[in-house]
Design a protein around this nucleic acid. Structure first.
Length: 332
DNA sequence: TGTTAAATCCGGGCCGGTTT
DNA sequence: AAACCGGCCCGGATTTAACA
């Protein structure tokens, strides 16, 4: 009896030793975390973990590959000589950090965990369930790209009886997936139209200074497209959508920017006001000479028939012009 | 829906005749 | 002499219409 017990104890100990060994092997610090970044702008677009030459080989998801094809990019090792678990955790943290700070990563599966086959099948089932329920708008191709599966595999999972014993499985990154593929999401074209509507609204409100033609050029559409969009003749169902780069547009079309022409007109307004207030004594011709414009033009700002009178925002002349005005000041 | 060309709109600028 | 005022032209911006 005691012999048997001893044997059991020894076996258990042996097992424990073996487990420790395999733990050691599994935890061997050969993993690293890497990221892909665009050389020119230093923008990170993908974060991953791996060992060996994983960072430099294989394709990633389509969006990531698109950027790889479009830009000069490089690999950067963020952390190395770590265990798989550490790598995973660092990778997740890093992705979270980037996402929180607004960096648009192309990572689809956070943590870069390659799902097991069984999990992948579960995900496919879950996603096709959401498609069926009208929650998501995804084609089978979308699903296969998302899960890095073969298209025909996805078709098999959805349409054949071979996988009935596997239950739908909620994907970890369901949040991102729904945001990207929900039924009310918009295509790139629709987003562009929504952006145009948004800017049109700001033009209407005099918050931005640009013509519809400029807007059309900015978004690489024709002015008549913009006109139709504005009138709701096309894309009536697309709402206003804030452009991602709305700040750039504000900088480019700043409503308070004053062009040289506007300055001239503003100065005419300024001088005419001073003349009307009796501060300056000048003829239209005098004003024309000082500002190097025709006296005809000056007269337009001084019309008595209001409907044709030119109006501009007053602009205070610089020192040089002011100096030229000095002889015309009325001495009291 | 989108493209293209033509039509229309509209403001800027200039002019000449008339008035101040 | 300077200002006033309607007319007119030009050209860019926008809209419309015809059509793939």
């Amino acid at each position: 009896m005691s012999d048997i017990n001893e044997e059991n104890i020894i076996n258990t100990e042996l097992e424990a030793i073996q487990n420790t060994e395999s733990d050691l092997i599994n935890n061997y610090k050969e993993y690293y975390v890497y990221e892909y970044y665009i050389e020119e702008s230093n923008e990170v677009f993908y974060v991953g973990k791996g060992k060996g030459n994983r960072a430099w080989k294989d394709v990633r998801n389509p969006e990531c590959e698109k950027i790889k094809a479009e830009y000069e990019w490089k690999v950067r090792i963020v952390e190395e000589g770590i265990t798989e678990d550490e790598a995973l955790s660092i990778e997740r943290d890093l992705i979270e950090k980037y996402r929180a700070s607004g960096v648009m990563l192309t990572n689809i599966m956070p943590g870069g965990v390659k799902p097991t086959e069984k999990e992948a099948i579960g995900y496919v089932k879950y996603l096709s369930f959401l498609v069926e329920k009208g929650v998501l708008q995804m084609s089978l191709v979308d699903i296969s790209n998302l899960l890095l599966l073969n298209q025909s595999t996805v078709w098999q999972i959805v349409n054949s009886e071979h996988y009935t014993d596997i239950d739908p499985l909620l994907p970890e990154n369901i949040n991102e997936i729904i945001h990207k593929y929900h039924v009310n999401s918009y295509t790139d074209d629709q987003i562009r139209v929504g952006n145009i509507k948004y800017i049109l609204d700001l033009i209407e409100k005099d918050v931005l200074k640009l013509s519809q033609a400029q807007l059309a050029e900015y978004y690489e559409v024709t002015p008549s497209n913009v006109s139709s969009i504005k009138k709701g003749k096309t894309h009536a169902n697309v709402p206003l959508l804030i452009p991602d780069n709305v700040g750039d547009i504000f900088k480019r079309f700043d409503v308070f920017y004053v062009s040289e022409e506007e300055k001239i007109r503003g100065m005419i307004m300024f001088i005419i006001r001073l003349r009307n207030e009796g501060i300056l004594r000048m003829t239209n011709r005098d004003i024309g000479r000082v500002l190097e414009v025709s006296d005809y033009l000056v007269a337009e700002f001084n019309r008595t028939n209001e409907d044709r009178k030119y109006v501009a925002k007053e602009y205070r002349p610089d020192a040089e012009i002011m100096a030229k005005l000095i002889p015309y000041f009325v001495v009291k």
